[in-house]
Amino acid sequence: MERTANPERARTLEDLLPAGVIREVGRLDVSSRRVFAGKLKGERRSKRRGESVEFADHRPYSVGDDLRRIDWNIFGRLDRMFLKMFMEEEDLGLHVVVDASGSSDAGEPAGANKFLFMQRAAMALGYVGLVNLNRVACTVMGGRAPGEAEGSAGAVRSARDLRGRTRTVDLARFLCGVEPWGVLDFRRAAERIAASRRGKGVMVVLSDFFFKDGYEGGLRLLSGGGYEVYCVQVLSPQELDPGVRGDVRLVDVEDGDAAEVTVSAPLLKRYGEYVRSYTGALSGYCRKIGAGYVLASSGMSVDRLLVDELRRRGALA
């Protein structure tokens, strides 16, 4: 909950991706609950069962249709061209979105800083995508470059079309080039991401989802366009179990909003209920729009997030 007193900033690839994490996540690959046949034919493990589990419909060929979709078996039998409609078969991309608003600069000790955790998770995910020859993109919402006076509420910066292990360093350099700052206009940022992305694949959004204007509009935009979205809500150990007690004046690091409270045991109990209700509402909304949801503490290890949580939900295999 409380802002990190002396935040530890990642400077190098080693800070973001320790050897131990590489060992744990190196055997993973990006996956999807939907059918994505894959970038290079034959490389992606097909999710099809039997010959027709994803069969949708037959449709007569018409001008403009992709010749590769023609069902040649039926052509051989009927001497007419029909398209056998399957689920989408597209190049599978991995798009990692990181929230760099001021609220992500929280968590004690310094190693449990939420932004650092998100950077490390983004790096590990990107690494999995890169070594498996997926098209990887990474977008940071909000924040500012180190040394910059101030950023913009709806700003996004992206590294796109990365492919192959050799681009790991580029991704690390990109992630190290941002530090958390200010308020984020999530909807505007999501609008920009949705408008600029191409193709299909898996999108992982790392954020604390503390948006006072709501997260629904932004997530709705991100969930469309052929991307299977996973929301990873990163909260610090202190946000899940606050250590603060007594009469305090709580000041929001993003917008300076102040609240005077007397923190007592009943209040902490109520706060705990609100945390559960907030995360539950986000989880429910994700289910409603067909997105996956993971709640992560910035105190946990990144490889646990990938190996235990995201793999269990089908984002990784």
């Binding site: 909950m1 001021g102 503390f210 009469d247 305090v248 709580l250 409270v261």
Partner: peptide
């Protein structure tokens, strides 16, 4: 007459409703 310690937090969002309750309840806590 209360004096309060200032604590910077990531967001007052989660505290919003609790704070509202607390504003109403704080006197009763006392």
């Amino acid at each position: 007459k209360l004096r309060r310690r200032v604590v910077e937090v990531s967001s007052t969002l989660l505290w919003r409703r609790a704070v509202e309750d607390l504003r109403a309840n704080a006197p009763f806590q006392r």
